[in-house]
Amino acid sequence: MNHFKGKQFQKDVIIISVGYYLRYNLSYRDVQEILYDRGINVSHTTIYRWVQEYGKRLYQIWKKKNRQSFYSWKMDETYIKIKGKWHYLYRAIDSEGMTLDIWLRRKRNT
């Protein structure tokens, strides 16, 4: 079933605007302004309705997709040279090879 059928805006616009609201601590008017800067004229009340309609569903999809990364992950350490100075590069990866986090440190004990 297509949940976006009959909407005035494309699926991508709806997902991006709901994602901006949920991911970052933005108001509906802030999201409206961001979309307006990108050439999309949408009302803040429309964004509110999208969040109410699609917010829970998008969260469930995200949770289902990212569930695996919390169970199995590995830490990789390497020593690299940046602008003539040596640094430690740490990378956390999950079982599928997706990068979870990256740290760059000058000393190994930090």
Score class of each variant (00 low, 15 high):
residue 89 L to M: 02
residue 97 G to N: 10
residue 59 Y to P: 06
residue 45 T to H: 06
residue 65 K to V: 09
residue 56 K to E: 13
residue 63 K to E: 03
residue 42 V to S: 05
residue 81 K to I: 11
residue 67 R to A: 15
residue 98 M to H: 15
residue 91 R to Y: 08
residue 58 L to Y: 02
residue 48 Y to Q: 07
residue 70 F to H: 14
residue 89 L to A: 00
residue 56 K to A: 13
residue 62 W to Q: 05
residue 44 H to M: 07
residue 40 I to V: 11
residue 40 I to C: 03
residue 47 I to G: 03
residue 76 D to I: 14
residue 86 W to I: 10
residue 70 F to T: 11
residue 104 L to D: 00
residue 92 A to Q: 11
residue 48 Y to N: 10
residue 84 G to C: 04
residue 37 D to E: 10
residue 61 I to P: 01
residue 105 R to K: 15
residue 37 D to Q: 07
residue 52 Q to W: 03
residue 50 W to P: 00
residue 54 Y to N: 04
residue 96 E to W: 06
residue 55 G to C: 05
residue 41 N to V: 13
residue 73 W to F: 15
residue 58 L to T: 01
residue 53 E to G: 01
residue 101 D to N: 15
residue 82 I to E: 08
residue 82 I to D: 06
residue 54 Y to C: 04
residue 68 Q to V: 03
residue 39 G to V: 01
residue 82 I to M: 10
residue 80 I to K: 07
residue 55 G to A: 05
residue 73 W to V: 07
residue 57 R to Q: 14
residue 89 L to H: 03
residue 90 Y to C: 05
residue 76 D to Q: 08
residue 104 L to R: 04
residue 69 S to K: 12
residue 81 K to R: 13
residue 74 K to W: 13
residue 65 K to Q: 10
residue 67 R to S: 15
residue 87 H to D: 08
residue 104 L to F: 07
residue 97 G to K: 05
residue 92 A to M: 09
residue 50 W to T: 00
residue 51 V to D: 02
residue 54 Y to L: 06
residue 71 Y to E: 14
residue 62 W to T: 05
residue 77 E to C: 00
residue 73 W to D: 11
residue 101 D to V: 07
residue 93 I to Y: 12
residue 98 M to D: 15
residue 104 L to M: 12
residue 80 I to V: 09
residue 75 M to P: 00
residue 100 L to S: 12
residue 75 M to C: 08
residue 57 R to G: 09
residue 45 T to W: 03
residue 55 G to H: 02
residue 58 L to Q: 02
residue 64 K to I: 03
residue 58 L to W: 03
residue 78 T to G: 01
residue 46 T to V: 09
residue 50 W to C: 00
residue 53 E to C: 01
residue 84 G to V: 04
residue 63 K to L: 06
residue 57 R to Y: 14
residue 35 L to T: 01
residue 51 V to H: 01
residue 75 M to V: 12
residue 76 D to F: 14
residue 40 I to A: 06
residue 99 T to C: 08
residue 75 M to W: 05
residue 96 E to P: 01
residue 41 N to E: 12
residue 56 K to Q: 14
residue 91 R to I: 13
residue 78 T to S: 10
residue 73 W to M: 12
residue 86 W to T: 12
residue 105 R to H: 15
residue 102 I to F: 07
residue 79 Y to H: 10
residue 39 G to M: 02
residue 78 T to L: 02
residue 68 Q to Y: 06
residue 45 T to R: 10
residue 105 R to L: 11
residue 50 W to D: 00
residue 61 I to E: 07
residue 69 S to V: 07
residue 53 E to P: 00
residue 99 T to M: 05
residue 99 T to W: 05
residue 38 R to V: 06
residue 66 N to F: 15
residue 58 L to R: 01
residue 62 W to H: 08
residue 98 M to A: 15
residue 59 Y to F: 13
residue 59 Y to D: 09
residue 91 R to H: 07
residue 72 S to M: 11
residue 78 T to Q: 07
residue 40 I to Y: 06
residue 100 L to N: 11
residue 55 G to D: 02
residue 55 G to R: 01
residue 82 I to W: 03
residue 42 V to P: 02
residue 81 K to C: 08
residue 63 K to S: 05
residue 73 W to C: 14
residue 100 L to G: 06
residue 60 Q to P: 04
residue 41 N to S: 12
residue 33 E to P: 01
residue 57 R to S: 11
residue 92 A to Y: 09
residue 40 I to Q: 03
residue 65 K to F: 04
residue 69 S to T: 13
residue 86 W to Y: 14
residue 71 Y to A: 08
residue 73 W to A: 11
residue 52 Q to I: 08
residue 104 L to N: 05
